[in-house]
Design a protein around this nucleic acid. Structure first.
Lengths: 196, 196
DNA sequence: TTGCTAAACGGGACATGGTTCCGTATCGTC
DNA sequence: GACGATACGGAACCATGTCCCGTTTAGCAA
């Protein structure tokens, strides 16, 4: 489906050098603009920052979701990989869950507007939804299952619902002294606990 | 600042009859359009539904927040008044809190997009924020205080933070079979409980 | 090196939606 | 009935997402 299946023989014609260069330039520009103006910064701004035309953005990243995914892929991967690691290094599965949710919250709140867009039901963001969910829900499920197996939490809340809830709690969490997303997420997780 | 301070109380020249009529018409139209298309329906749509020009909307309701407040004022009042009532009729303060949060969630999720706009940090929605907070936070505070006094919950979470959290949980809760805002809000509240 | 073609580009054109302005119509009063 | 203030409608303006099309350029081969 992508260009890596060159294997079977025929040259699936690699991208032109300038195109590859532009893609990189765009990613850098987008990252910078996202930090400065949030993930829903105007397309023209990003294009200007990168010194390209607007159409070039659409050519490389057909939807905004594609661009966002590309910009944050590393960090999402890191978050996903942290799950199993935490499970091994934490005292209990619940502690691991708690810490992992903390990582997830930290990631979201530091990305201006990402949580909001993650929640959007705009069809253009389906890919973003799918990516986050595909990548992180299994990790969360594993943590939940472990904690449930240890009898620490109830087991009737699906990971996807919990993650959406946590994601929602992160919306608008920056620059608001009266709102601590991390604390609320902690409360939500605490609500899962079984009396022991 | 508004027209009611015309001197020491003399007839502040009542609005013209057609203006009053239009305001009512607009409220009805807005309510209908909000149900059909959400609270961020295009201004033109609302104007068309009401059979008036767009400027008329801005004249009566300078910001969208003003319109939303006017449309939902009754229901917000009802929610506010339900607080003390629940406190009297429930077995414990915690039960009252739980039920009241349920009312709040029900209100929000049935108003297409309201929760999202309530969360928006767009300056245009400051009035909406202020109204909701002014009206409901004291009610929530009283419920929290009662439950805390009864030793049922911890007392270190301000009502405003909790309400913002619950509001956020309600974002995008309609038409999503995998997301139960009410349940998550319940979890959040449950996270407040003290071991007894 | 030069010439050719497909890939890639840029920026202008179009659509949508919020907001404001201005000439006109209407209300309420004298 | 006339007049001034109030209110109205819709066109105009601006911002932003999206798409199109004429132009440029990389990569290749003669």
């Amino acid at each position: 489906m992508n260009d890596s299946d060159r294997g079977a023989g025929r040259a699936a014609r690699p991208k032109r050098a300038d195109a590859r260069r532009n893609e990189k330039t765009l990613l850098d520009a987008a990252a910078a603009v996202f930090v400065a103006s949030g993930v829903d910064a105007p397309v023209r701004d990003i294009a200007a920052k990168a010194g390209v035309g607007t159409a070039t953005i659409y050519r490389h990243f057909p939807t905004r979701a594609d661009l966002i995914i590309a910009v944050y892929r590393h960090q999402v991967e890191a978050c996903a990989e942290a799950g199993p690691a935490l499970l091994e290094t934490s005292a209990t599965p619940y502690a691991a869950l708690e810490r992992w949710i903390g990582l997830f919250v930290d990631f979201l709140v530091t990305k201006h507007g990402l949580a909001a867009v993650l929640r959007s039901d705009d069809a253009g963001f389906d890919a973003l939804h799918a990516y986050f969910l595909d990548r992180l829900v299994p990790v969360c499920t594993r943590l939940l299952d472990a904690a449930a197996a240890a009898g620490e939490i109830r087991s009737d809340i699906p990971a996807i619902e919990l993650m959406r809830g946590v994601g929602n709690l992160c919306i608008g969490a920056e620059d608001d002294p009266h709102y601590d997303a991390r604390r609320l997420a902690g409360l939500l997780i605490a609500g899962l606990r079984l009396p022991r």
